[in-house]
Design a protein around this nucleic acid. Structure first.
Lengths: 239, 239
DNA sequence: CCGAAACGAGAGCACTGCTCTTGCATTGTC
DNA sequence: GACAATGCAAGAGCAGTGCTCTCGTTTCGG
């Protein structure tokens, strides 16, 4: 299962060699991260990472089997960070509208500050690259934060979706319903959650990729309105 | 303005040389298009296009100044096609809900059949690449088709947006309001149009990039619901 | 008809991911 | 402690890329 070399980062190194290996792996990852943040994934090369660390390019292959492997590590990192940004912005005690807006803003802030990392996880997949199974769990942290806010609101009786077309239940994956069963969501509410998650990612993508140029005048203001509008669609008490 | 070499395609060739040039330009573009559809833009190389046409790679540079130039031509082509797909699916005489759903479905169909072309125009921008001014006009055809349907519905008095958070007018670019002034949209209606356009692109992107795997069970069904739901948000008479 | 412009082909540069071999250092075991 | 096994770094090398430059050839317009 966990066949990736960088998993040694998580285990406690014992011998000096293992410690050196873990450190070097982390250094390579850090350098790659730096270059990714600077120039994007397309311009990230194993050779330039090796140059930055003063080692031969072939030596890097001892730590990451391929460029895709290095990219996978960066993808996991990005998913983790955006998930943590969402979770840290959430204040479980506050009103659901405030929590909703805070999480949306935090995700946008992180994305604006890490546009290349955002592109890595939500942009066009690299051709030939298939996401390993590792990424699915960590990818769920951000959308699950949104779901938790709605679940809390529903528990408090303050989730009242407006009328409108109802999503046919068979359109949703049963496993998805099962996973959110603890929150006792209706299929239509799950559909609204999926759309809200899609909206959050999509509107940030539009802003980052320049599709809102000459369209919106105040991106932050428009984003806030989008967050409120989408929250209202879910039934959160936005007026 | 029109400084791109492939514009000769539009002009009537006179001499034999000009005719040959126009033909070869079209052939290069066609071969590039074929390779793009097959493997995606990342794997599209000028050299392989040259190989396919049996010419030296350096010769291709007589027709396209750079790889980015070739990509720009493909981007214009993709924007044109998706715009035409939307326009052709629209039946100005029919009911607005039918028109809306037909256009949404046509855009999805085109995108599923041309995933790499979709990625080229709505995916992560190629690093270092900046969209030339040519692309902005042709990029508007698809969203304008959506706007026209709403304008017709509004003219017929059948556009009644549900209550909810209202977009502050200063969030929208005045030029955008100006462009749609002929349809006499309110700023909030323009905001809803922007969001609908963003939704259409975003939900297709989610489907194409695999973000709906294990989330939705019937993508076509979920897409139809999304179209209806978004149309209802705009005030179209979806029940 | 002749000079100028356009053109195709080839060599070459700097870069990429990745593999293989070679030699050295570290490790665990008699 | 000696020794084999393993881990590791470095270099050369392969096939591919975008792009440039040069060098003959072809074509066009005055």
């Amino acid at each position: 299962m966990l066949s990736f070399r960088y998993t040694v980062l998580m285990n406690a190194p014992k011998t000096a060699r293992e410690r050196a290996r873990a450190e070097l792996t982390a250094e390579i990852l850090a350098a790659a991260r730096r270059q990714l943040a600077e120039s994007g994934s397309a311009l990230l090369s194993l050779r330039s990472v090796a140059r930055e660390l003063g080692m031969a390019s072939s030596a890097v292959y001892r730590y990451f089997a391929s460029r895709d492997d290095l990219l996978t590590a960066l993808i996991v990192q990005a998913y983790t960070e955006i998930g943590e940004a969402a979770e840290n912005a959430d204040l479980p005690g506050a009103a659901p509208e405030e929590r909703w807006l805070a999480v949306w803003r935090a995700v946008r802030e992180w994305s604006l500050a890490h546009r290349h990392e955002y592109a890595l996880i939500f942009g066009t997949p690299v051709p030939g690259y298939v996401a390993p199974h590792i990424t699915v769990e960590v990818a769920g942290r951000m959308p699950l934060t949104l779901a938790r806010i709605c679940a809390d609101a529903k528990g408090a009786g303050s989730l009242n979706p407006p009328s409108g077309p109802v999503c046919p239940p068979e359109a949703i994956e049963p496993a998805m319903l099962q996973m959110l069963a603890g929150e006792s969501f209706e299929p239509d509410e799950v559909a609204r959650l999926i759309l809200a998650w899609n909206r959050l990612v999509g509107i940030i993508g539009y802003e980052l990729h320049g599709h809102l140029q000459n369209v919106t005048a105040d991106d932050a203001l428009f984003f806030d309105h989008t967050a409120r509008s989408e929250g209202a669609d879910l039934g959160l008490p936005f007026r």
